[in-house]
């Protein structure tokens, strides 16, 4: 088997960095997330490939928090769009966990299927190579196995690395992965290492059947109880690897400017507030319900898989202690009122 010795990792990253922007999990001051290797400061920042999940997922690599779309120029009664800003520069997500990759596959469904391909997403996505870091030791908040993710054999990876102590076992899965592997071939060695043994999950989550049951629970009283503590602060949508909802806004300086899109959150009242003042989800509980139904029922109905990948970030981040695992449990246990 091919392996990349941990001692050679940083040199290999420097090599990859010449042809692409490489994003990988790191701790920067108080923050942890996927940052560009260019921004890594020796002695201050810490690589976090060993950590299970850093606080922020790599979704900004496929869907930037803000992204310019096109330029706008006004001349009298004339309006011009002179430039669009699709960005297909090569990027690598290095060391993404299987749950985060599954989230990207969910976004692929949204942005690339059902009649329209989003050009901004497509151009960017096609130039992204994903190096997955397989998981053998689930953490206390992890439940990806319940959400149709295989932590050891993740789908959607161009390359899979597996932590075998002194080195990462390196497995190339796709042509894109081969191109990346060939760039750092000089650092890879042939060696036989023992693979880690997959440990059992700490949480036991039974998602099967939840979507079907939820179909009968839209009007159930349970939502008032489940969502009572929710502040609609939106942190769950911010840290979520698969929350992709976006807004489209404009920035003008006099006669010139641009249209851009940016992350939005279904937790906010403005999200679905209409110009005339109406709002189908004006109440916080209605927005809470819509988010969990989207994650656990609607997305599954539309695309065949849930929009939660079991990463556990929202459980850690929620200031009100709302826990999607407990919500799944309560839904499964709830008695249906006819």
């Amino acid at each position: 088997m091919k392996v990349l010795s941990k001692a050679k990792l940083e040199t290999a990253l420097n090599k990859l960095n010449q042809g692409a922007e490489v994003f990988l999990p790191m701790q920067k001051a108080q923050e942890s997330g996927f940052y560009s290797w260019k921004l890594f400061q020796q002695g201050q920042d810490e690589l976090m490939l060993d950590a299970l999940n850093v606080y922020l997922p790599p979704k900004h690599v496929v869907l930037p928090q803000t992204e310019r779309m096109y330029s706008i120029k006004l001349e009298g009664q004339d309006m011009k769009i002179e430039q669009t800003f699709e960005d297909a520069s090569p990027r690598v997500i290095f060391g993404a966990r299987p749950c985060d990759i599954k989230a990207i596959l969910c976004m692929d469904e949204v942005f690339l299927t059902r009649g329209y391909e989003d050009s901004f997403y497509k151009c960017r996505r096609e130039a992204i190579t994903i190096v997955a870091n397989a998981c053998y030791q689930p953490g206390p908040a992890c439940f990806c196995n319940a959400m149709e993710v295989n932590p050891v054999e993740p789908a959607g990876a161009d390359i899979i690395i597996r932590d075998a102590g002194e080195a990462y076992v390196w497995e190339t899965k796709t042509p894109k992965g081969e191109a990346l592997t060939s760039q750092i071939a000089e650092f890879l060695e042939e060696k036989s290492l023992a693979l880690p043994v997959a440990q059992p999950f700490i949480q036991d989550v039974k998602y099967e059947g939840t979507a079907e049951k939820l179909k009968k629970m839209f009007a159930d009283h349970i939502w008032a109880k489940l969502g009572e503590a929710c502040h609609n602060c939106g942190i769950c949508t911010y840290v979520c690897p698969s929350c992709y909802c976006f807004d489209i806004q404009v920035k003008m300086w006099g006669d010139e400017g641009y249209r851009f899109r940016c992350w939005d959150s279904c937790m906010y009242e403005e999200y679905s507030r209409e110009a005339g003042g109406g709002n189908p989800r004006g109440d916080g509980i209605e927005r809470f319900r819509n988010r969990f139904l989207h994650k656990l029922e609607f997305f599954k109905e539309r695309y065949g898989t849930p929009l939660c990948t079991g990463c556990g970030r929202c459980i850690v981040a929620c200031p009100a202690g709302i826990n999607i695992v407990k919500i799944i449990d309560e839904i499964k246990e709830a008695e249906l009122h006819a």
Binding site: V110, G115, F218, Y244, C245, D247, D264, C266
Partner: peptide, 19 residues
């Protein structure tokens, strides 16, 4: 029907009724 919309092509999320 009508709801608030941004993208118009089923991506941005806000005009859903169920799925």
């Amino acid at each position: 029907l009508e709801m608030r919309m941004k993208c118009g092509i089923g991506k941005c999320g806000r005009c859903n009724i169920g799925s």
